[in-house]
Design a protein around this nucleic acid. Structure first.
Lengths: 207, 207
DNA sequence: GTCTATACTACGATAGAC
DNA sequence: GTCTATCGTAGTATAGAC
């Protein structure tokens, strides 16, 4: 499939060099097709860019199917079960962020986060919104007294711990004195994430 | 100063569009000078890019002078004082990340974090290394039993909570249902950061 | 559907006037 | 130090063959 190959290559190129920096020539060449295939399949460079966003949203959603399943019936859970689910979701996200395959699309997302275009709307509506609302619902079981904005802020900062594994990867590697994150570093970071999350949620529960 | 104006403009342009995406034509025009001034002052596009990294490092270091001062004599502190200092540093970083002025250089840094070039070395050696080592030293007062890698992982995830305010700004705004972060949102996020940090550090202390 | 060929614009670098 | 002028290259888009 020329179309599928173009999408995959384009996500990598747009992610690394940005919309303007990436060239349709390079993308077409790397996908082993002609430049005009982009016009045919996506209408042009911009169409290809937006299609990348849709593809990423679908891909992340598929990869996190098990995590999304943990959002159902949140209101009926005990506090302990809600905490357990939050820990599972956080770890699932961490594993994804630590996996090499997430590098390309994560670059794309981080770029859109800082300079949102129409592509960000698609990413947000496609996955992020549901992910954040889901965690918020679980958090409201853990901290029933918190206001909705407080729960959202909590969810965002918890996500921040996970996202730093991608968005500041170079510093993570430098700090841990490795060239790239291996199994040992992954285990260390996941353990730390789990313990931090437990600490935060327990502190909120005690009050 | 043509040189200073070029640096400021270039950080914004490189941050938004990346090294390849940004054009020396646009940078020169925005700095109200000729394109050849870049050649004269920085030797070319790449020289300008590296000079941007140095400038950012110096700028952040200057802006965080008070925070860096909190690193001195870490070994002699009580656990409570070390925690208090970590909270101050975290809040100082959060204020910086929430301030509109950090948008341009933060884009530059986040980009380098995901695709490090020689510019990342300059950012790391210029500020980040000392910042992370400093926090690590304070953390070792709080959790004297932890290994160095454990302390580094802890420091990284704590930073992640702060960095998410910039690196995922679009999602933060969407989640809080605002177009941009105002004083109310800033207060909410800073409070949450503080409480999370206290919770994490207390949990580690108890064991 | 995928290719080649081409039109037109914008890129970075540099030479040389002032 | 800063400008204008220009060179060679690389960008996107599109027309048209197959």
């Amino acid at each position: 499939m020329t179309r599928a190959r173009l999408l995959e290559v384009a996500i990598a190129h747009f992610g690394r060099r940005g919309f303007e920096g990436a060239s349709t020539r390079d993308i077409a060449a790397a996908a082993e097709t002609a430049m005009s295939s982009i016009t045919y399949h996506f209408g042009g460079k911009e169409g290809l860019y937006l299609a990348c966003a849709d593809h990423i949203a679908a891909q992340v959603r598929e990869r996190q199917t098990e995590a999304f399943a943990l959002f159902v019936d949140a209101a009926a859970l005990t506090r302990e079960d809600a905490i357990a689910r939050i820990l599972l979701i956080g770890d699932s996200m961490a594993v994804m962020m630590l996996h090499p395959a997430s590098a390309d699309w994560a670059r794309f997302i981080v770029r859109e986060q800082q300079d949102p275009t129409e592509a960000f709307d698609r990413l947000w509506e496609g996955v992020m919104k549901d992910l954040l609302l889901g965690v918020q619902a679980l958090l409201s079981r853990v901290c029933p007294d918190h206001s909705q904005p407080e729960l959202r802020a909590l969810a965002l900062l918890l996500f921040g711990q996970v996202m730093v594994l991608r968005s500041a990867r170079a510093s993570v590697c430098r700090a841990l004195e490795v060239d790239e994150l291996g199994p040992d570093e992954a285990a260390l970071l996941r353990k730390r994430l789990r313990r931090n999350t437990i600490a935060v949620l327990n502190a909120e529960t005690e009050e």
